[in-house]
Simulated scan of single mutants.
Amino acid sequence: MSADLPLSGRKCVVTGGARGIGAAVVRLALAQGADVVFGYHSSAAAAAELAERMRAAHPGQRCTALPGRVGDTADAGRFAEDALHELDGAVDILVNNAGVTHDISFARIRREQWDEVLETNLGSMFNVTRPLVMPLVRQRRGAIVNITSASGLHGAPGQTAYSASKSGVIGFTKALAKEIGGLGVTVNAVAPGFIATDMTAAIPEPQAERLRNLIPSREFGDADDVAALVCFLASDRARYITGQVIEMSGGLIL
């Protein structure tokens, strides 16, 4: 493993990899030497374009986009099985990134909206990690990185479902880290704050300006910033870090 290619030869699976933070992780993992399989649900065109562009940029590496609604157990199982097949039956890195939100007051949220957020953000932790954890454990080496949120640490008004799901990701991360830490697999979580993605682009500008004023740098973070931390946690450089939740919010909460 060279310093320039810390993920050289590694096989990486990323959920929700077609856009935003997931796409940034896909790009950087490939740039650092990994083979990557990433999932998508509703962004087929973006996924195909990203995979084609990455294969052209990294001709000696694999980059495959696979469909899968990871909130659904059966669909997620098929995705995991197909991902393993694409990677010759092995995986070194799993990045659980898929997520949705319904920003609405608790008094107005419908049960189906609550269920969609919990199933996608938290249920996918079980659905995808369960079939992939044993391949990681058997080789006694690997990393799982889960994307949670600053909302999961501190809560946010209008995000009861999202905050609850992301808090669950934190508990999942800490418990699984204790279970498999002695088997050579690290499990960590990254908790971004406001990152410039499609999700934050939907925030009305007056509200976005108020939010930026709460951040010392007065700006939202970039998906590439998050990807850099994810790929660090997936590398041997972070081999002695496990069970941690690293907030990346630009000092939003101090």
Rank of each mutant, 00 (worst) to 15 (best):
H154E: 10
W114C: 02
E179Q: 08
M134K: 10
W114R: 01
E209Y: 01
I215T: 07
P157C: 04
S165P: 07
A177F: 05
A177K: 02
Q159R: 15
V117E: 09
P192A: 05
F194A: 05
N213L: 09
V185Y: 04
V137L: 13
D225G: 14
R111F: 12
D236S: 15
V137N: 04
R111E: 15
A202K: 14
E179P: 02
A223I: 00
R237I: 00
R130N: 05
A234G: 14
N146E: 03
I203K: 04
R212I: 05
P204T: 08
M125L: 15
E179R: 02
S217K: 12
T200W: 07
K178H: 03
F232G: 11
V137G: 03
L214Q: 15
F126C: 02
A228D: 14
A234N: 12
I147W: 05
A150D: 11
L183D: 14
S151A: 15
Q113S: 13
D222P: 09
K166V: 11
Q113M: 13
A228P: 06
G158N: 10
I195E: 08
G123N: 07
K174I: 08
R210F: 05
V169D: 02
K166M: 11
G123C: 05
S163E: 08
R218Y: 10
V185W: 05
F220S: 10
E219H: 13
R141K: 14
T129E: 03
G221A: 14
R140N: 11
I195L: 10
I203Y: 00
N146K: 00
F220Q: 12
D198E: 15
N121W: 10
T200P: 00
F232W: 14
R111N: 12
R138G: 08
V117S: 11
F126E: 03
E219T: 15
R218W: 03
C231A: 11
V187L: 09
D198G: 12
R140P: 04
P192T: 07
L132C: 05
L211Y: 13
T160S: 15
R212S: 06
T197N: 11
S167E: 10
P216V: 07
S235W: 13
M199K: 06
S235C: 13
W114Y: 14
